[in-house]
Design a protein around this nucleic acid. Structure first.
Length: 463
RNA sequence: GGCGCCAUAGCCAAGUGGUAAGGCGAAGGUCUGCAAAACCUUUACUCCCCAGUUCGAAUCUGGGUGGCGCCUCCA
């Protein structure tokens, strides 16, 4: 039984989907006004893994992740660059794909763009006005928080407390400081769309309500995003959606913790962020994934060069084990009985992986099982092992790391010039010319490659 | 002011009342021409502190201390 920590109830709950065997999942996507940073990558990677795991567990998952392609930041940047908001969106959606693909984040089933869902948003807003939960004021429409009595139930706050702490200067047009815009009246020079209230553009929160309901229905299973979205974004989404439909909107709210720099939140507004684009100039994309998976998704996670180095070293251990298994497969003996009980041990490890992941997607716990599998491979299998045993370990390793999106790289192809040096080194070794051999190894190192001598001969891997 | 989260070895980290997973690093050893990888051994008698509950607490309760987040665009 999969258990999920629900931010709304603040406890771990058994996961029971609305429709047996099917899961509807929505994850707040990026505002496409810039490259995304390494902190943004955390939910993309984690929820990608959770989706893979749900599929691995046999669920048919419909995964939706939006692109917010109109808002203040989009408008500002488009203006600065002298392009339209649409052009800016097109550009950074394309850049999103490059980084997401590099990180092994699979495309969602649907990637709706806010600007392409105006009719749905307008219908929602009109419905809220009709029900008396929203009001129009000078061409803008606001959600009336006092008219949704359950407002605050997601973030566990009540209107009075929020009121007292509100730092926002009261907008003259709002009846209540906590009311929020569903529709913003057109301003000169800003993109706008026709609506019953005149030209304007949607508020941020309504986008996600409209797009999630459009593809997942009025009620669905999982809504995910960063912890900072819990309030007000998700609170508002919930209010709008349930206000409109009169029924529960989302069954499980999931929120990932932050990726920190020096123990402080990384964010664009603080300027202490690294874009994924920049990180990937220096590190393997899978190292980033490994780092993310090494901690529980709700815990804060510090980002540093040292952490990246640790992640890289850990991952290398898994790659080494996999490559060795591949090599063993060649020499393994078909039909040899599994005297060591490999099959049972592998299944035991697989079960531990499952129980880790079932436990609110505890990737750190599951990772322990993956390393146990590597250990099993290193200690219990050798050239004399049965082919079936080797195959079992190898395929299970592929299966589990596949769920995590790791070990996606094949064996590395060696560039010709590197191979040429390696060949000369092999020759020197054959002649027992150790001085020459070591000199050539040093040369390979300068080229970024590590030469290792194994019983099967010289092996090369990227340093 | 309101609402939350976190504290486990040199670093990262799991642990959801029954006697501290795993990874990185470090030290010694096996193997190797030397390395690397792998393997073996060592690296938390103890989980921020103080009380309490319990036969039993890293885990539960209360009180401290320290750090972080949301309440404003934010993953």
């Amino acid at each position: 039984m999969i258990q999920i920590y629900n931010s709304q109830t603040r406890r771990r709950e058994d996961f029971v989907p609305l429709r047996a065997g099917k899961v509807g999942m929505y994850c707040c996507g990026p505002t496409v006004y810039d490259f995304f940073h390494i902190g943004n990558a955390r939910p993309f990677i984690m929820f990608d893994v959770f989706r893979r795991y749900l599929q691995y567990r046999g669920y048919e998952v419909t995964f939706v992740q939006n692109f917010t392609d109109v808002d203040d930041k989009m408008i500002d940047r488009a203006r600065r660059e002298g392009v339209t908001v649409r052009e800016l969106g097109d550009r950074f959606i394309a850049e999103y794909w490059k980084d997401a693909n590099a990180l092994g984040v699979k495309p969602a089933d649907v990637h709706p763009r806010a600007t392409e869902h105006m009719p749905q948003m307008i219908a929602l807003i009109q419905g809220l006005i009709d029900k008396g939960m929203a009001y129009e004021q000078a061409g803008s429409v606001y959600f009336s928080t006092p008219d949704f009595p359950e407002y605050g139930k997601l973030s566990g706050q009540n209107l009075e407390d929020l009121d007292a702490g509100a730092r926002v200067s009261v907008d003259e047009e709002k009846r209540n400081p906590l009311d929020f815009a569903l529709w913003k009246a057109e301003k000169p020079g800003e993109p706008s769309w026709d609506s019953p209230w005149g030209r304007g553009r949607p508020g941020w929160h309504i986008e996600c309500s409209a797009m999630s309901m459009a593809y997942l229905g009025e009620a669905f299973d999982i809504h995910a995003g960063g912890q900072d979205l819990l309030f007000p974004h998700h609170e508002n989404e919930l209010a709008q959606s349930e206000g409109f439909t009169g029924r529960p909107f989302v069954n499980y709210w999931m929120h990932n913790g932050f990726l920190n720099i020096d123990n402080t939140k990384m964010s664009k507004s603080l300027g202490n962020f690294f874009t994924v684009r920049d990180i990937l100039k220096e590190y393997e994309p899978e190292d980033v994934r490994m780092l993310m998976l090494s901690a529980h998704y709700r815990s804060p996670l510090n980002f540093s060069r040292d952490m990246m180095a640790q992640a890289h070293a850990s991952l290398t251990r898994l790659y080494t084990a996999r490559d060795r298994l591949n090599a063993l497969l060649v020499s393994a003996k078909p039909g040899k009985a599994d005297g060591a009980g490999i099959t049972e041990k592998v299944e035991e490890i697989r079960q531990r992986f499952l129980s880790g992941m079932d436990n609110d997607f505890n990737t750190a716990e599951a990772m322990g099982a993956v390393f146990d599998l590597a250990y099993l491979a290193n200690t219990e299998l050798d050239e004399g092992s049965g082919k079936e045993a080797v195959q079992t370990v190898l395929s299970t390793l592929a299966e589990l790391t596949g769920v995590l999106g790791l070990l996606a790289r094949g064996e590395e192809s060696v560039p010709e010039d590197v191979q040429a040096v390696a060949d000369r080194r092999a020759e020197a070794r054959k002649n027992r010319d150790w001085a020459q051999s070591d000199a050539l190894r040093a040369e390979l190192a300068r080229m970024g490659w590590l030469a290792e001598d194994t019983p099967q001969g010289q092996k090369l891997r990227r340093a």
